[in-house]
Each structure stands twice: as C-alpha cells, then as structure tokens.
Amino acid sequence: MKKIISLFFLVFIYNFGFSQELLATVQVNSQQIGGSNQQAFKSLEKSLRDFINNTSWTGKKLQNFEKIKCGFSIVISEKVDNRYKGTIVIQAVRPVYATTYESPLLNLQDQRFGFEYIENENLIFNERQFSGKNLTDVISFYVYLILGYDADSFQSMSGSQWFSKAQQIAQNSQNRNYEGWNTINEPRSRTILINEILNPSWSQLRSAVYTYHRSGMDNLFNQDQTAAKKVIFDTLMQLKMYENTFQQGFFFNLFMDTKSDEIFNVFNSGNNGGIILNDLKQVMITLSPKNIDSKWNKWK
C-alpha cells in the first residue's frame, strides 16, 4: 500500500490502546494583514500551543509517545483592535499497529473563526460557560472532537463522553454573536457537526470508524493483507445505507474527505484477494462523487 504523507514527520513508538491527551502543533499565519504587530501572533501561537498541550482534558497524564498527534493551523484574514477573523484547519492522525504509518482521523477546515485576543493574556476555559471571547471555546471544541474521534477508532462508540463535552461547548456558544455555531444558515457549523455525530441516525458511521481502523487498518500490514482488506471493504460497503442522505451529512462528508486518499491507496495495490473492487468502486462513486476522476475511476 502506498503510504500517505502525513502532516507530521516525527515517528513515535506506538503504544497499543487509545491515548487521550494531545501532542499538538500550532501555526498562526498573519500574512494577509501585513504590517500588524507580528509579536502578538507569535504570542498567540505559543499561548495556544501551551493551552492545548498542557491542559488536562481527560484527567490522564500520559507520556509523549502515548498522546494523539494533531495540528491546528490558523490563517488570520482580518484584525480590528483586539478582534480577529480567519480560518482554522484541524488535523489529527492515529498510529497503525506495529508500523510507523499514521492514519488520518480528522482533516477539517473551519472558515468561520472569529475571536478576541490580547497579547500575552492567559487562556482560560470553563466547560460550563462561554468564555466571552470565542477563542478557547472553538479550540476546546475541536480538542474534544479529536479525543472523541480517537477513542471511537480504538473502541466502538467510546468517544461519546468527549463528543458530549464538545456538544456542551456548542450549546454554551449559541447566540453569542460569533459565527460557526449556528444551526440555521450555517450548513457546516460546529453545532451541526457534533449534533450529527451524537445522532443515532449516524451510529453506523461511528461503528464503521472503529471497525475500519481496529479490525482493518491495524491488521493491514500483516504479511497476508487479504483479511484486513476484506474488513475495510465490508465496512465501506455497509455505508451504502447512507446513499440517500449523505449529501446533507456534514459528519459523513467529513469522513469521506478525510479518508478518501487512504481508501484509494488501500485498494490501489492490485493485491486485493477475492474482493470485487468494482462493487466498492460503484459505492464510492455514489458516496464521494467529487473524487470520481481523481480516484475511483483509476482503480483497475
């Protein structure tokens, strides 16, 4: 299988069992607003990195090689006094058992990121109430989202406790005059995403995340890949149940956006055992039509 180049280049020893704290990189890009005080953005970058990596999100203290590797990349497009607007990209990966390969868990771009920040201020988060500035609220929401995705990939549906915390943050942030939290006129909002994840209608997709990774990817690097590929094949074929609803599903489309490169590469080796690849091809054409020419039609 071709290896997908990860955002992260460090190789960590894999510790079996799911990790529930973060090892995050943070980048803040302010090039679009030019001559502003660059030191403030360096301060923001460091403060966010410390906030994400040093906060005890789960109550567990883990060694670095046990932590979830992730990245937060912020592009600032507007600044008025202490108010900022921009885009944030959140990425997270999961180690694959007995390999150095990292499977992408989350790759999300949020274009409605507005917040207030004063240079060198302490970043404080209280899960019970909105901060008033939206910065730690958005970051903490995505931290718990990452924790939920990671947990689900190691034990079926075990991310619910972290997804529920993300949902509470979304509820706290409603009607606070910041974009990205609304359920009306914001079709890919944070609130819509987390509500879908916890909606029983999408429970088959959450179960698929576990089976795909734990029974599929974690066994894919055995000398005989046939069984692992069959698990991944069967798991993806089961998603056909969403063929009439996936267009409206932020959670579903996020899964496809994150995993499409990997899915393509898994079955592009020409060594697929008894799998009828054309059956999977037709399902992927239906569920991920934007990748028809770049991926699915290239399968032989």
Rank of each mutant, 00 (worst) to 15 (best):
S103Y: 15
N126P: 05
E119K: 12
R112V: 07
E102T: 12
Q111I: 15
N120G: 05
F125W: 03
I90T: 09
S103I: 12
T99N: 05
R94L: 07
A98Y: 12
R94N: 04
F125I: 13
Q111E: 15
P95W: 06
L106S: 03
E102S: 10
V93I: 13
N122Q: 15
V96S: 08
F115W: 07
F113N: 00
A98I: 10
N120L: 10
E127D: 12
N126Q: 08
G114Y: 08
Q91A: 11
E127A: 13
E121M: 03
L108R: 09
A92Y: 00
E121D: 11
Q91C: 04
E116W: 07
E102N: 13
F125G: 02
T100G: 10
N122S: 14
F115Q: 00
Q91L: 08
A92F: 01
V96C: 11
I90L: 07
I124W: 07
A98M: 13
N126R: 08
Y101W: 06
I90P: 01
V89P: 01
F113G: 00
F113D: 00
I124F: 09
N107E: 02
T87Y: 01
N122L: 12
E116T: 08
N126V: 13
Y101C: 07
L105C: 01
E121G: 00
L123A: 03
Y101P: 10
N122T: 14
E119R: 09
Q91H: 11
V96G: 06
Y97T: 14
L105S: 06
F125R: 04
E116Q: 15
N126G: 10
S103F: 15
R94S: 09
T99K: 09
F115A: 04
V96D: 09
Y97F: 14
I118F: 14
E121W: 02
L106K: 05
V89F: 05
Q111R: 15
I90A: 00
Y97Q: 13
F113T: 00
N120I: 01
D110V: 08
E119S: 15
T99C: 05
R112K: 15
L106E: 05
Q91W: 04
E116K: 08
T99S: 07
T99V: 06
F125N: 04
F125D: 01
V89K: 14
L106Q: 03
N107F: 09
I124E: 04
F125A: 03
N122D: 12
T87L: 11
E116C: 12
E102L: 12
D110P: 07
I118S: 12
F113W: 02
Q111C: 10
R112N: 15
L123R: 00
N120A: 02
Q111S: 14
E121S: 06
L106P: 05
N107V: 11
N107R: 03
P95R: 02
